[in-house]
Structure formats: C-alpha cells, structure tokens
C-alpha cells in the first residue's frame, strides 16, 4: 500500500511540474515572435513561470482527495505556502530585470501614464505582496481566520485575473492561433476550477446537510460535537481523518474549519468531532443546539491506522487535543475487536485536563492498550512521567522491534511537541517512513 502511495506521489509531482512549465514549453512551439535580448526574454519567462505557479495554487487548495492522499493535507498546504515564495521570487524578478537592463521601463511604474498592460501587472504584484503578507502575519495583524480566508480567496483570484490581463494586453507571445488557444484553454481551466470550488462543491454539500445530535463537554476545555446525516447516507471515513465543517448559514459560507473525527469509523452514521476552545469559532461550538444544520466536507487526510494494515503494533503520541484523531483510531480498533498491541503516550498540562481520561481507562479492557500519561504539572503524589515528551520518555516506552515497517507511530499535537518527538524518534533510529504526523495551523 505504501509503495502505491509513493508511486502516486511521484506521479502527481511530475504532473505538477508539467503543468507549471506548460506555458514555457508551449510558447516554444510554432512560429516564434522576433527574438529579443536574453535578459528581456528571461524576465518574460520568469513572469510566465510565476503566473503558472500562482494559477496552480488553486488546484492545491481545491481539496482534491486524489491529490492529497499520497502526501497528507498538511504537506499539500505547506507546499502551497512554500511554492508561493518561489512564485513570488519569479514574479518580482520579472520587472526588476526589465528595470535594470532597460531603465526606461521604470516609467511603467507611474500608473497614471502607464499603458493598461503595465497597470494590470503592477497592481497584480502589489496585491500579491499584500496577499502574502496577510498570510505570513495573519496573527500579528490580528486578522480573524474567516475574514482572512475570504480576502485570501478574493485577492488570489484578482491577482491571477490581472496577471492574465497583463499577458493578453502585452500580446508579444500571442502571435499564433496555437498560443492564443493555449491562453484561452488556460483561462477556461482556471474559471472552471474556480466554479468548481466556489459553486459546484458547495452546491453538492447543500444537498447533503447534517444535523447536530448533541454537544457534550469534555475534560480539557473541549466539546464533543456529534452530527448525523439528514436524509442521506453520509460517508465512510478512515479513523484519524478530518473534515471541514461549516456551521449554519450555507455551505457557500467561507466560515469553515477543519476538525478531526473523534468517533469510530465503524459508525459512519454518526460523526463526532472533539473541539477544544481555542479561538472565536471554537468558542461557539458549545452554543450549538440539537437539530441545527451543519455541513461536513470530507473525509480528508492520510493520518490513519487503516493505511498500514501490515503493522504488527501501533504507537500513538498525542499532546492535548491532538488526542482527537487517536481517539477515533482507538474507538475504531475497539469496535473491530483488534488485538494488536497499542501504546498511547499522551501529554497534558495536568491530571484534570486529560480529555477522554475515563474512556481511555475503559478502552484498556477491550484493547491491548498501554497508556502513558505525561503531565506538565503533575499532582503531588504523581509517580508517572513529568514535563514534556522527550527522547528519554520515548526510549522508556516505545516497544522494541528490530523489524522496520512493523510498528507504525502516529504523532499529533502542538507543533513544538511534534518537532521534539520527530527529532527524538529520528535520534532513536526509527526509520522516517515509520512515523506519521499531520498538522493544520499553517496561517
């Protein structure tokens, strides 16, 4: 199964490279416009490459399951973020080369006297800088997530539209019907993609609403929200996966947030999400009333025991609300009567804030489960692990095995914890392919 995902992963990287370089490759076909000096052509090539990468950002964030399955949603979103810097560099160097080698082009910066092609180009670059800045410093700028998401979508669309306008008005590389067809196809593909994301997908969700069954408090300032499909059969998911939830209004709303399932995958007719109160949106979960409508777009993610059927045992390392996907996996394995050995290393602030503490104790009766609590502020008589999960704790509690690929390790929690755990596992010589993590706080 892993080999299958590796092949798919390489395939999509190849497709991405092909799509990203397609404008450059196709522009070389057919009759070429009159050649100009190297730096001007290099500048133009970088502009086309930057536009191509920016357009592909819409594909990366369109939540295509086939695209995310080989890597995991967090990798795709992180790549979306990192490739922005590459595209931004290309796009910024595009005019800079012109300014350096043809200083007369500096006059194009004067938007009052500049031709429309330059106005479109300059505005696109300025808006792209705003878009990137808003994403990098959203928290510092105190921009609320939902508001940021709306503006992120609007700005991205305007930037690409202006950039295409810039290309069309510049005309230099639209000298043959083939190249004109390329850009028309490119435009249709892009508009079609936007229509799919903004119209078709929400419309399909509209026909598959869910209703709130219950909202129950959990330890650790968290709430378990249970929803049932209304007049449809719902969907199957793998334990450990997540979905995007939109509460009330309509699925066309931009106010949607990703949460892991905490319920058993063997009960798909009832989905539970356990959500910690961390921000404006999560604080509203407790106010939901039974019967209220929510929309669930999922499942997504590759973080699941079901992707590793060959494993002889599993280790789960969770911090705080990172227990949610682990709980879904544990509940599912209990439902299935799975007897493979399981180790859960679970870090929390104190004994009272351990979400699912009692249920974990009960699960030890039905599963071959060892739970290791790690407490930052343990009670006076605590003789268990203290502080943060570190290499020494991992060494003490990880099952010993000299066979790679037989113990699969899942990590979910705050980023510093995940970094420390991954470093610890690496130091202990655990093969990179044997541990898995997924994180979502990217902006």
């Amino acid at each position: 199964m892993r080999k299958n995902y590796v092949i798919k992963g390489i395939f999509w990287i190849f497709v991405y490279l092909l799509l990203a370089s397609a404008p450059l490759l196709i522009l070389l076909l057919g009759k070429m416009p009159e050649g100009r000096e190297f730096w001007r052509e290099f500048s133009v090539a970088l502009g086309f490459a930057g536009l191509s990468l920016m357009s592909l950002q819409f594909v990366l964030t369109a939540r295509f399951k086939f695209l995310k399955a080989p890597y995991g949603a967090d990798i795709v979103y992180h790549f979306h973020r990192q490739i922005t810097f590459v595209a931004l560099a290309f796009i910024l160097v595009h005019p800079l080369l012109l300014f350096v080698f043809s200083p007369d082009t500096l006059a194009l910066l004067n938007l009052i006297t500049a031709p429309w092609r330059a106005r479109a180009g300059v505005t696109a670059v300025v808006l792209l800088l705003v878009l990137t800045g808003m994403s990098l410093w959203r928290r510092k700028m105190k921009i609320e997530y939902t508001r940021w998401r709306i503006w992120h979508g609007i700005l991205a669309t305007v930037v690409v539209a202006l950039a295409v306008t810039h290309v069309v008005l510049a005309r230099h590389y639209l000298n043959t019907p083939l190249k004109q067809t390329l850009w028309i196809t490119y435009g249709i593909f892009w508009v079609g993609l936007l229509a799919y994301i903004r119209i078709l997908k929400p419309f399909l969700l509209l026909k598959r609403p869910y209703r709130v069954e219950s909202v129950l408090p959990e330890r650790g300032n968290a709430w378990s929200l249970t929803v049932r499909p209304a007049r449809h059969s719902g969907f199957h998911f793998m334990p450990g996966q997540f979905a995007w939830i939109t509460i009330g209004n309509s699925p066309f709303s931009e106010s949607e947030h990703p949460f892991s399932f905490s319920s058993s995958a063997e009960q798909p007719e009832m989905l539970t999400f356990t959500i910690k109160e961390l921000g404006d949106f999560t604080r509203t979960i407790k106010t939901l009333q039974p019967g209220q409508v929510v929309y669930v777009d999922g499942p997504f993610g590759h973080f699941s025991v079901d992707r590793h059927p060959h494993a002889e045992q599993f280790v789960m390392i969770a911090g705080g609300v990172g227990i949610t996907p682990m709980m879904s996996m544990l509940r599912t394995l209990a439902h299935r009567g799975d007897k493979r050995p399981l180790t859960l290393i679970y870090a929390n602030r104190d004994w009272e804030s351990i979400t699912f503490r009692e249920e974990l104790e009960r699960l030890q009766d039905s599963l071959t489960l060892k739970v290791v609590h790690v407490l930052e502020k343990p009670p006076a008589n605590w003789d268990g692990e203290k502080g943060y999960i570190n290499q020494a704790i991992l060494e003490r509690h990880l099952p010993k095995s000299d066979k790679p690929n037989k113990i699969e390790i899942f990590i979910c929690g705050p980023q510093p914890m995940m970094n420390a755990v991954e470093q610890g596992l690496s130091n202990l010589g655990i093969p990179f392919g044997d541990y898995h993590s997924e994180q979502f706080s990217l902006v």
Partner: peptide, 30 residues
Amino acid sequence: MRQKFSTWLAVFIGIVILILAIAFALLQSI
C-alpha cells in the same frame, strides 16, 4: 520534519522551472 519535504519539493520545482526559463530565454534570444 514532514514540512522539510514540502520545502525541498518547492525548492526542487523552483530550480527545474528556473532552468527551463533560462533555456527558454536562450532559445529565444539566439
């Protein structure tokens, strides 16, 4: 650790496209 993969992938794709852009410019300007 996993994020390093996407960072290096972005760098790799950036380099490949940069090489293509240079080749494009060379072909056009010769």
